[in-house]
Design a protein around this nucleic acid. Sequence first.
DNA 1: TAAAACGGATAGTAGGACTATCCACTATCC
DNA 2: GGATAGTGGATAGTCCTACTATCCGTTTTA
Lengths: 220, 220
Amino acid sequence: MRMADLTSRAGVSSATVKWYIRIGLLPRGESTARNQARYDERHLHRIRLIRALLEVGGLTVEQTQQVLAAVDDPERGAADVAAAAHAAVSRRVAHQHTAEALPAVDRYLAARKWTVGESSPARADLAAVLAALRLLSGPIGNDDASPAADADADIARLLDPYADALEPLARSEVAGLPPAVHRGELAERIVLGTVLMDQAISALRRLAQENAFTAAADRK
Amino acid sequence: MRMADLTSRAGVSSATVKWYIRIGLLPRGESTARNQARYDERHLHRIRLIRALLEVGGLTVEQTQQVLAAVDDPERGAADVAAAAHAAVSRRVAHQHTAEALPAVDRYLAARKWTVGESSPARADLAAVLAALRLLSGPIGNDDASPAADADADIARLLDPYADALEPLARSEVAGLPPAVHRGELAERIVLGTVLMDQAISALRRLAQENAFTAAADRK
DNA sequence: TAAAACGGATAGTAGGACTATCCACTATCC
DNA sequence: GGATAGTGGATAGTCCTACTATCCGTTTTA
Protein backbone atom coordinates (compact mmCIF):
# COMPACT_ATOMS: atom_id res chain seq x y z
CA MET A 1 0.00 0.00 0.00
CA ARG A 2 1.30 3.42 -0.87
CA MET A 3 0.64 6.73 0.78
CA ALA A 4 -2.24 7.58 -1.56
CA ASP A 5 -4.01 4.30 -0.78
CA LEU A 6 -3.46 4.70 2.92
CA THR A 7 -4.79 8.23 3.08
CA SER A 8 -7.80 7.57 0.91
CA ARG A 9 -8.77 4.46 2.87
CA ALA A 10 -8.20 6.13 6.21
CA GLY A 11 -9.80 9.39 5.23
CA VAL A 12 -7.00 11.66 6.41
CA SER A 13 -4.58 13.86 4.50
CA SER A 14 -1.03 12.80 3.80
CA ALA A 15 0.16 15.83 5.73
CA THR A 16 -1.65 14.47 8.75
CA VAL A 17 -0.19 11.01 8.29
CA LYS A 18 3.29 12.45 8.03
CA TRP A 19 2.67 14.46 11.16
CA TYR A 20 1.44 11.39 13.05
CA ILE A 21 4.61 9.60 12.05
CA ARG A 22 6.77 12.50 13.10
CA ILE A 23 5.26 12.69 16.58
CA GLY A 24 5.46 8.95 17.00
CA LEU A 25 1.76 8.09 16.92
CA LEU A 26 2.23 5.99 13.83
CA PRO A 27 5.22 3.85 12.84
CA ARG A 28 7.06 4.67 9.63
CA GLY A 29 6.31 2.66 6.55
CA GLU A 30 8.91 0.24 5.32
CA SER A 31 11.07 2.35 3.09
CA THR A 32 11.80 1.02 -0.39
CA ALA A 33 13.78 3.97 -1.68
CA ARG A 34 15.09 7.28 -0.48
CA ASN A 35 11.66 8.83 -0.79
CA GLN A 36 9.29 5.89 -1.02
CA ALA A 37 7.75 3.65 1.58
CA ARG A 38 5.25 0.85 1.77
CA TYR A 39 2.43 0.68 4.32
CA ASP A 40 0.26 -2.22 5.34
CA GLU A 41 -3.02 -3.00 7.04
CA ARG A 42 -1.49 -2.37 10.43
CA HIS A 43 -0.87 1.23 9.50
CA LEU A 44 -4.43 1.63 8.33
CA HIS A 45 -5.74 0.07 11.50
CA ARG A 46 -3.55 2.30 13.59
CA ILE A 47 -4.81 5.45 11.93
CA ARG A 48 -8.38 4.34 12.46
CA LEU A 49 -7.62 3.71 16.10
CA ILE A 50 -6.02 7.13 16.44
CA ARG A 51 -8.94 8.84 14.75
CA ALA A 52 -11.44 6.97 16.93
CA LEU A 53 -9.65 8.05 20.10
CA LEU A 54 -9.31 11.65 18.92
CA GLU A 55 -12.65 12.24 17.25
CA VAL A 56 -15.04 9.91 18.98
CA GLY A 57 -13.29 9.57 22.30
CA GLY A 58 -12.34 13.22 22.48
CA LEU A 59 -8.80 12.57 23.66
CA THR A 60 -6.02 15.03 22.94
CA VAL A 61 -3.08 13.97 20.82
CA GLU A 62 -0.95 13.81 23.94
CA GLN A 63 -3.39 11.53 25.74
CA THR A 64 -3.58 9.38 22.64
CA GLN A 65 0.20 9.10 22.59
CA GLN A 66 0.25 7.92 26.17
CA VAL A 67 -2.52 5.40 25.67
CA LEU A 68 -0.92 3.98 22.55
CA ALA A 69 2.46 3.85 24.24
CA ALA A 70 0.87 1.62 26.88
CA VAL A 71 -0.80 -0.50 24.22
CA ASP A 72 2.48 -0.90 22.36
CA ASP A 73 4.65 -1.76 25.35
CA PRO A 74 4.72 -5.53 25.73
CA GLU A 75 5.95 -5.13 29.29
CA ARG A 76 2.70 -3.62 30.46
CA GLY A 77 -0.09 -5.89 31.63
CA ALA A 78 -3.83 -5.41 31.37
CA ALA A 79 -3.98 -3.38 34.57
CA ASP A 80 -1.32 -0.98 33.30
CA VAL A 81 -3.14 -0.46 30.03
CA ALA A 82 -6.39 0.12 31.89
CA ALA A 83 -4.65 2.66 34.12
CA ALA A 84 -3.30 4.51 31.09
CA ALA A 85 -6.75 4.52 29.49
CA HIS A 86 -8.31 5.75 32.72
CA ALA A 87 -5.75 8.53 32.98
CA ALA A 88 -6.46 9.57 29.41
CA VAL A 89 -10.21 9.75 29.92
CA SER A 90 -9.79 11.72 33.11
CA ARG A 91 -10.46 15.44 32.78
CA ARG A 92 -7.63 15.89 35.28
CA VAL A 93 -8.93 19.27 36.31
CA ALA A 94 -8.25 20.95 39.61
CA HIS A 95 -11.50 22.72 40.30
CA GLN A 96 -11.32 25.15 43.18
CA HIS A 97 -12.20 22.97 46.14
CA THR A 98 -11.40 19.59 44.68
CA ALA A 99 -8.77 18.79 47.26
CA GLU A 100 -11.20 19.44 50.09
CA ALA A 101 -13.74 17.09 48.60
CA LEU A 102 -11.25 14.22 48.19
CA PRO A 103 -11.59 12.89 51.74
CA ALA A 104 -15.34 12.65 51.31
CA VAL A 105 -14.81 10.68 48.12
CA ASP A 106 -12.48 8.32 49.94
CA ARG A 107 -14.98 7.84 52.75
CA TYR A 108 -17.64 7.06 50.17
CA LEU A 109 -15.41 4.54 48.43
CA ALA A 110 -14.56 2.96 51.76
CA ALA A 111 -18.24 2.73 52.68
CA ARG A 112 -18.93 0.95 49.42
CA LYS A 113 -15.90 -1.27 49.93
CA TRP A 114 -14.41 -0.23 46.63
CA THR A 115 -10.67 -0.67 46.53
CA VAL A 116 -8.94 1.87 44.32
CA GLY A 117 -5.37 3.12 44.15
CA GLU A 118 -4.33 6.42 45.69
CA SER A 119 -3.27 7.68 42.31
CA SER A 120 -6.48 6.99 40.44
CA PRO A 121 -7.37 10.17 38.61
CA ALA A 122 -11.04 9.23 38.80
CA ARG A 123 -10.98 10.00 42.53
CA ALA A 124 -10.09 13.61 41.83
CA ASP A 125 -12.55 13.81 38.96
CA LEU A 126 -15.37 12.72 41.21
CA ALA A 127 -14.19 15.11 43.90
CA ALA A 128 -14.25 17.97 41.40
CA VAL A 129 -17.87 17.24 40.55
CA LEU A 130 -18.84 17.11 44.20
CA ALA A 131 -16.95 20.32 44.96
CA ALA A 132 -18.66 22.11 42.11
CA LEU A 133 -22.10 20.88 43.15
CA ARG A 134 -21.45 21.89 46.74
CA LEU A 135 -20.40 25.37 45.68
CA LEU A 136 -23.54 25.70 43.60
CA SER A 137 -26.03 24.59 46.23
CA GLY A 138 -25.60 27.85 48.08
CA PRO A 139 -28.03 30.76 48.52
CA ILE A 140 -29.54 30.15 45.12
CA GLY A 141 -30.57 26.62 44.26
CA ASN A 142 -30.43 25.54 47.87
CA ASP A 143 -31.83 22.09 48.37
CA ASP A 144 -32.64 22.23 52.05
CA ALA A 145 -28.98 22.73 52.76
CA SER A 146 -27.94 20.22 55.31
CA PRO A 147 -25.85 21.21 58.31
CA ALA A 148 -22.60 19.90 56.86
CA ALA A 149 -22.56 17.18 59.51
CA ASP A 150 -24.35 14.77 57.22
CA ALA A 151 -22.65 16.01 54.08
CA ASP A 152 -21.47 12.44 53.65
CA ALA A 153 -25.05 11.24 53.76
CA ASP A 154 -25.94 13.76 51.06
CA ILE A 155 -23.14 12.48 48.89
CA ALA A 156 -24.24 8.90 49.39
CA ARG A 157 -27.83 9.83 48.54
CA LEU A 158 -26.60 11.48 45.37
CA LEU A 159 -24.13 8.86 44.22
CA ASP A 160 -25.71 5.59 45.36
CA PRO A 161 -28.10 5.23 42.43
CA TYR A 162 -25.22 5.69 40.03
CA ALA A 163 -22.82 3.46 41.89
CA ASP A 164 -25.50 0.78 42.24
CA ALA A 165 -26.03 0.81 38.49
CA LEU A 166 -22.35 0.93 37.57
CA GLU A 167 -20.95 -1.63 39.99
CA PRO A 168 -22.44 -4.72 38.32
CA LEU A 169 -21.80 -3.18 34.92
CA ALA A 170 -18.10 -2.74 35.66
CA ARG A 171 -17.93 -6.26 37.04
CA SER A 172 -19.39 -7.69 33.86
CA GLU A 173 -17.08 -5.57 31.73
CA VAL A 174 -14.01 -6.85 33.54
CA ALA A 175 -15.29 -10.42 33.54
CA GLY A 176 -16.07 -10.14 29.84
CA LEU A 177 -12.47 -9.49 28.88
CA PRO A 178 -11.29 -12.57 27.04
CA PRO A 179 -8.05 -14.33 27.95
CA ALA A 180 -6.84 -12.72 24.73
CA VAL A 181 -5.26 -14.56 21.89
CA HIS A 182 -2.42 -12.10 21.91
CA ARG A 183 -1.82 -9.22 24.25
CA GLY A 184 -2.10 -6.35 21.76
CA GLU A 185 -5.64 -7.34 21.01
CA LEU A 186 -6.58 -7.38 24.68
CA ALA A 187 -4.87 -4.05 25.24
CA GLU A 188 -6.82 -2.49 22.41
CA ARG A 189 -10.09 -3.90 23.71
CA ILE A 190 -9.40 -2.38 27.10
CA VAL A 191 -8.69 1.01 25.58
CA LEU A 192 -11.78 0.96 23.39
CA GLY A 193 -13.88 -0.29 26.26
CA THR A 194 -12.72 2.59 28.38
CA VAL A 195 -12.55 5.47 25.92
CA LEU A 196 -15.24 4.74 23.37
CA MET A 197 -17.70 3.12 25.72
CA ASP A 198 -17.53 6.22 27.89
CA GLN A 199 -19.05 8.10 24.99
CA ALA A 200 -21.53 5.32 24.36
CA ILE A 201 -22.68 5.44 27.97
CA SER A 202 -23.05 9.19 27.83
CA ALA A 203 -25.13 8.94 24.68
CA LEU A 204 -27.22 6.05 25.99
CA ARG A 205 -27.96 7.89 29.19
CA ARG A 206 -29.19 10.91 27.28
CA LEU A 207 -31.35 8.69 25.09
CA ALA A 208 -32.74 6.93 28.14
CA GLN A 209 -33.42 10.27 29.80
CA GLU A 210 -35.23 11.57 26.79
CA ASN A 211 -37.31 8.45 26.66
CA ALA A 212 -38.09 8.68 30.36
CA PHE A 213 -38.97 12.32 29.90
CA THR A 214 -41.46 11.73 27.15
CA ALA A 215 -42.92 8.78 29.02
CA ALA A 216 -43.38 10.95 32.10
CA ALA A 217 -44.95 13.72 30.01
CA ASP A 218 -47.35 11.27 28.37
CA ARG A 219 -48.58 10.05 31.72
CA LYS A 220 -49.61 13.56 32.71
CA MET B 1 -20.07 43.60 46.17
CA ARG B 2 -17.38 45.18 44.04
CA MET B 3 -15.26 43.66 41.32
CA ALA B 4 -12.43 42.77 43.69
CA ASP B 5 -14.77 40.87 46.03
CA LEU B 6 -16.41 39.08 43.14
CA THR B 7 -13.16 37.95 41.58
CA SER B 8 -11.57 36.85 44.83
CA ARG B 9 -14.64 34.89 45.89
CA ALA B 10 -15.09 33.33 42.46
CA GLY B 11 -11.42 32.66 41.91
CA VAL B 12 -11.18 34.17 38.46
CA SER B 13 -9.39 37.26 37.20
CA SER B 14 -11.19 40.52 36.58
CA ALA B 15 -10.13 40.32 32.93
CA THR B 16 -12.00 37.05 32.68
CA VAL B 17 -15.08 38.48 34.36
CA LYS B 18 -15.08 41.41 31.98
CA TRP B 19 -14.75 39.04 29.08
CA TYR B 20 -17.67 36.89 30.30
CA ILE B 21 -19.76 40.04 30.50
CA ARG B 22 -18.73 41.13 27.05
CA ILE B 23 -19.69 37.84 25.43
CA GLY B 24 -22.96 37.73 27.33
CA LEU B 25 -22.25 34.82 29.66
CA LEU B 26 -22.62 37.03 32.69
CA PRO B 27 -24.96 40.02 33.13
CA ARG B 28 -23.42 43.41 33.82
CA GLY B 29 -23.32 44.67 37.37
CA GLU B 30 -25.65 47.46 38.33
CA SER B 31 -23.67 50.55 37.44
CA THR B 32 -23.39 53.24 40.07
CA ALA B 33 -21.13 55.60 38.14
CA ARG B 34 -19.49 55.90 34.79
CA ASN B 35 -16.86 53.39 35.76
CA GLN B 36 -18.25 51.65 38.81
CA ALA B 37 -20.71 48.83 39.23
CA ARG B 38 -22.11 46.72 42.01
CA TYR B 39 -22.42 42.92 41.83
CA ASP B 40 -24.46 40.57 43.96
CA GLU B 41 -24.68 36.91 44.93
CA ARG B 42 -26.37 36.06 41.66
CA HIS B 43 -23.26 37.15 39.78
CA LEU B 44 -21.07 35.02 42.01
CA HIS B 45 -23.35 32.06 41.56
CA ARG B 46 -23.36 32.55 37.84
CA ILE B 47 -19.60 32.58 37.60
CA ARG B 48 -19.42 29.40 39.65
CA LEU B 49 -21.93 27.81 37.32
CA ILE B 50 -19.94 28.89 34.28
CA ARG B 51 -16.70 27.58 35.76
CA ALA B 52 -18.31 24.29 36.68
CA LEU B 53 -19.62 23.79 33.15
CA LEU B 54 -16.31 24.78 31.57
CA GLU B 55 -13.80 23.14 33.88
CA VAL B 56 -15.63 20.18 35.35
CA GLY B 57 -18.13 19.58 32.58
CA GLY B 58 -15.65 20.23 29.82
CA LEU B 59 -18.02 22.33 27.74
CA THR B 60 -16.72 24.98 25.39
CA VAL B 61 -17.64 28.60 25.95
CA GLU B 62 -20.04 28.43 23.05
CA GLN B 63 -21.82 25.39 24.44
CA THR B 64 -22.01 27.10 27.80
CA GLN B 65 -23.58 30.15 26.19
CA GLN B 66 -26.24 28.01 24.58
CA VAL B 67 -27.02 26.11 27.76
CA LEU B 68 -27.25 29.26 29.83
CA ALA B 69 -29.40 30.94 27.21
CA ALA B 70 -31.85 28.07 27.64
CA VAL B 71 -31.67 28.33 31.42
CA ASP B 72 -32.30 32.07 31.28
CA ASP B 73 -35.20 31.98 28.86
CA PRO B 74 -38.43 31.78 30.84
CA GLU B 75 -40.25 30.61 27.74
CA ARG B 76 -38.41 27.32 27.65
CA GLY B 77 -39.75 24.40 29.62
CA ALA B 78 -37.88 21.58 31.29
CA ALA B 79 -37.75 19.53 28.11
CA ASP B 80 -36.21 22.42 26.19
CA VAL B 81 -33.56 22.95 28.82
CA ALA B 82 -32.80 19.25 28.85
CA ALA B 83 -32.47 19.30 25.07
CA ALA B 84 -30.04 22.21 25.24
CA ALA B 85 -27.99 20.43 27.89
CA HIS B 86 -27.99 17.24 25.86
CA ALA B 87 -26.83 19.14 22.79
CA ALA B 88 -24.03 20.73 24.78
CA VAL B 89 -22.76 17.44 26.14
CA SER B 90 -22.86 15.87 22.71
CA ARG B 91 -19.51 15.55 20.99
CA ARG B 92 -21.38 16.29 17.77
CA VAL B 93 -18.70 14.63 15.72
CA ALA B 94 -19.18 13.21 12.28
CA HIS B 95 -16.90 10.20 12.33
CA GLN B 96 -16.42 8.64 8.93
CA HIS B 97 -19.26 6.16 8.79
CA THR B 98 -21.56 7.65 11.38
CA ALA B 99 -24.41 8.19 8.95
CA GLU B 100 -24.34 4.54 7.90
CA ALA B 101 -24.59 3.40 11.51
CA LEU B 102 -27.58 5.61 12.30
CA PRO B 103 -30.22 3.20 11.01
CA ALA B 104 -28.82 0.47 13.22
CA VAL B 105 -29.06 2.80 16.20
CA ASP B 106 -32.66 3.55 15.35
CA ARG B 107 -33.46 -0.13 15.04
CA TYR B 108 -31.88 -0.71 18.42
CA LEU B 109 -33.88 2.11 20.00
CA ALA B 110 -37.05 0.78 18.42
CA ALA B 111 -36.31 -2.71 19.73
CA ARG B 112 -35.90 -1.30 23.23
CA LYS B 113 -39.04 0.80 22.80
CA TRP B 114 -37.17 3.98 23.56
CA THR B 115 -38.85 7.01 22.09
CA VAL B 116 -36.42 9.75 21.13
CA GLY B 117 -36.63 12.68 18.79
CA GLU B 118 -35.16 12.61 15.30
CA SER B 119 -32.90 15.49 16.19
CA SER B 120 -31.36 14.05 19.34
CA PRO B 121 -27.61 14.45 19.00
CA ALA B 122 -27.12 11.42 21.20
CA ARG B 123 -28.31 9.22 18.34
CA ALA B 124 -25.43 10.38 16.17
CA ASP B 125 -22.99 10.14 19.06
CA LEU B 126 -23.91 6.53 19.62
CA ALA B 127 -23.74 5.86 15.90
CA ALA B 128 -20.24 7.35 15.81
CA VAL B 129 -19.08 4.96 18.52
CA LEU B 130 -20.58 1.97 16.74
CA ALA B 131 -19.09 3.06 13.41
CA ALA B 132 -15.65 3.41 14.96
CA LEU B 133 -15.87 0.02 16.67
CA ARG B 134 -17.03 -1.60 13.46
CA LEU B 135 -14.14 -0.11 11.54
CA LEU B 136 -11.71 -1.37 14.16
CA SER B 137 -12.96 -4.93 14.36
CA GLY B 138 -11.45 -5.71 10.98
CA PRO B 139 -8.43 -7.86 10.07
CA ILE B 140 -6.72 -7.03 13.32
CA GLY B 141 -8.70 -7.36 16.51
CA ASN B 142 -11.34 -9.45 14.83
CA ASP B 143 -13.77 -10.90 17.31
CA ASP B 144 -15.13 -13.75 15.28
CA ALA B 145 -16.48 -11.27 12.78
CA SER B 146 -20.09 -12.02 12.18
CA PRO B 147 -21.54 -12.19 8.67
CA ALA B 148 -23.06 -8.70 8.80
CA ALA B 149 -26.51 -10.23 8.72
CA ASP B 150 -26.67 -10.29 12.50
CA ALA B 151 -24.81 -7.01 12.93
CA ASP B 152 -27.86 -5.83 14.82
CA ALA B 153 -27.54 -8.75 17.18
CA ASP B 154 -23.91 -7.81 17.80
CA ILE B 155 -24.92 -4.28 18.60
CA ALA B 156 -27.61 -5.48 20.97
CA ARG B 157 -25.15 -7.82 22.69
CA LEU B 158 -22.76 -4.93 23.12
CA LEU B 159 -25.20 -2.28 24.26
CA ASP B 160 -27.76 -4.24 26.25
CA PRO B 161 -25.78 -4.39 29.49
CA TYR B 162 -25.32 -0.63 29.35
CA ALA B 163 -28.88 0.15 28.38
CA ASP B 164 -30.19 -2.21 31.04
CA ALA B 165 -28.19 -0.37 33.68
CA LEU B 166 -28.99 3.11 32.42
CA GLU B 167 -32.70 2.75 31.75
CA PRO B 168 -33.82 2.56 35.39
CA LEU B 169 -31.20 5.14 36.31
CA ALA B 170 -32.56 7.64 33.82
CA ARG B 171 -36.08 6.93 34.98
CA SER B 172 -35.18 7.68 38.58
CA GLU B 173 -33.32 10.82 37.54
CA VAL B 174 -36.31 12.16 35.68
CA ALA B 175 -38.70 11.14 38.45
CA GLY B 176 -36.42 12.74 41.01
CA LEU B 177 -36.78 16.18 39.51
CA PRO B 178 -38.78 18.21 41.98
CA PRO B 179 -41.84 20.22 40.92
CA ALA B 180 -39.45 23.16 41.37
CA VAL B 181 -40.11 26.13 43.54
CA HIS B 182 -39.22 28.36 40.66
CA ARG B 183 -38.26 27.46 37.15
CA GLY B 184 -34.69 28.77 37.16
CA GLU B 185 -33.82 26.39 39.92
CA LEU B 186 -35.26 23.42 38.07
CA ALA B 187 -33.49 24.45 34.87
CA GLU B 188 -30.18 24.63 36.66
CA ARG B 189 -30.73 21.23 38.26
CA ILE B 190 -31.40 19.73 34.87
CA VAL B 191 -28.22 21.22 33.44
CA LEU B 192 -26.08 20.10 36.35
CA GLY B 193 -27.68 16.68 36.29
CA THR B 194 -26.81 16.33 32.65
CA VAL B 195 -23.41 17.96 32.38
CA LEU B 196 -21.77 17.37 35.74
CA MET B 197 -23.27 13.98 36.42
CA ASP B 198 -21.91 12.82 33.09
CA GLN B 199 -18.47 13.36 34.52
CA ALA B 200 -19.47 11.75 37.80
CA ILE B 201 -20.69 8.66 35.97
CA SER B 202 -17.48 8.46 33.98
CA ALA B 203 -15.42 8.71 37.15
CA LEU B 204 -17.58 6.23 39.06
CA ARG B 205 -17.37 3.71 36.25
CA ARG B 206 -13.60 3.92 36.24
CA LEU B 207 -13.52 3.50 40.00
CA ALA B 208 -15.87 0.55 39.78
CA GLN B 209 -13.76 -0.97 37.03
CA GLU B 210 -10.62 -0.60 39.03
CA ASN B 211 -12.28 -2.20 42.00
CA ALA B 212 -13.58 -5.05 39.87
CA PHE B 213 -10.13 -5.45 38.38
CA THR B 214 -8.35 -5.80 41.70
CA ALA B 215 -11.08 -8.09 42.99
CA ALA B 216 -10.65 -10.31 39.93
CA ALA B 217 -6.87 -10.28 40.33
CA ASP B 218 -7.16 -11.21 44.00
CA ARG B 219 -9.30 -14.21 43.24
CA LYS B 220 -6.63 -15.65 41.01
C1' DT C 1 -4.40 64.30 47.37
C1' DA C 2 -1.91 60.38 45.95
C1' DA C 3 -2.37 55.52 45.30
C1' DA C 4 -5.34 51.95 44.12
C1' DA C 5 -9.37 50.09 41.85
C1' DC C 6 -12.69 50.32 38.14
C1' DG C 7 -15.37 49.82 33.47
C1' DG C 8 -14.68 49.49 28.85
C1' DA C 9 -12.14 48.64 24.75
C1' DT C 10 -8.48 46.63 21.90
C1' DA C 11 -4.63 43.92 21.00
C1' DG C 12 -1.91 40.09 22.12
C1' DT C 13 -0.92 35.31 23.79
C1' DA C 14 -0.46 30.12 24.56
C1' DG C 15 -1.66 25.74 23.36
C1' DG C 16 -3.63 22.37 20.27
C1' DA C 17 -4.21 20.13 15.85
C1' DC C 18 -3.29 20.31 11.96
C1' DT C 19 -2.07 22.43 6.84
C1' DA C 20 0.81 24.39 3.15
C1' DT C 21 4.88 24.70 0.91
C1' DC C 22 9.31 23.42 -0.49
C1' DC C 23 12.84 20.22 -2.01
C1' DA C 24 14.96 16.50 -4.24
C1' DC C 25 13.85 12.55 -5.84
C1' DT C 26 10.73 8.04 -7.89
C1' DA C 27 6.97 5.98 -10.30
C1' DT C 28 4.09 5.82 -13.97
C1' DC C 29 1.82 6.67 -18.27
C1' DC C 30 1.78 7.48 -23.07
C1' DG D 1 12.02 8.40 -22.72
C1' DG D 2 10.22 12.41 -21.26
C1' DA D 3 6.35 14.79 -19.06
C1' DT D 4 3.47 14.34 -15.14
C1' DA D 5 2.08 13.06 -10.80
C1' DG D 6 3.27 11.19 -6.37
C1' DT D 7 6.61 10.71 -2.24
C1' DG D 8 9.42 11.32 2.26
C1' DG D 9 11.15 14.68 5.04
C1' DA D 10 11.42 19.18 6.97
C1' DT D 11 9.92 23.84 8.23
C1' DA D 12 6.82 27.45 8.65
C1' DG D 13 2.23 28.99 8.78
C1' DT D 14 -2.81 28.70 9.98
C1' DC D 15 -7.07 28.55 12.60
C1' DC D 16 -9.39 28.13 16.78
C1' DT D 17 -10.25 28.65 21.69
C1' DA D 18 -10.02 30.78 26.00
C1' DC D 19 -8.26 33.77 27.87
C1' DT D 20 -4.57 37.79 29.36
C1' DA D 21 -2.32 42.36 29.11
C1' DT D 22 -2.43 46.94 28.43
C1' DC D 23 -4.35 51.36 28.01
C1' DC D 24 -7.49 55.17 29.15
C1' DG D 25 -10.00 58.26 31.66
C1' DT D 26 -12.71 58.04 36.02
C1' DT D 27 -13.93 57.11 40.72
C1' DT D 28 -12.77 55.43 45.50
C1' DT D 29 -10.33 55.11 49.30
C1' DA D 30 -6.61 55.83 52.69
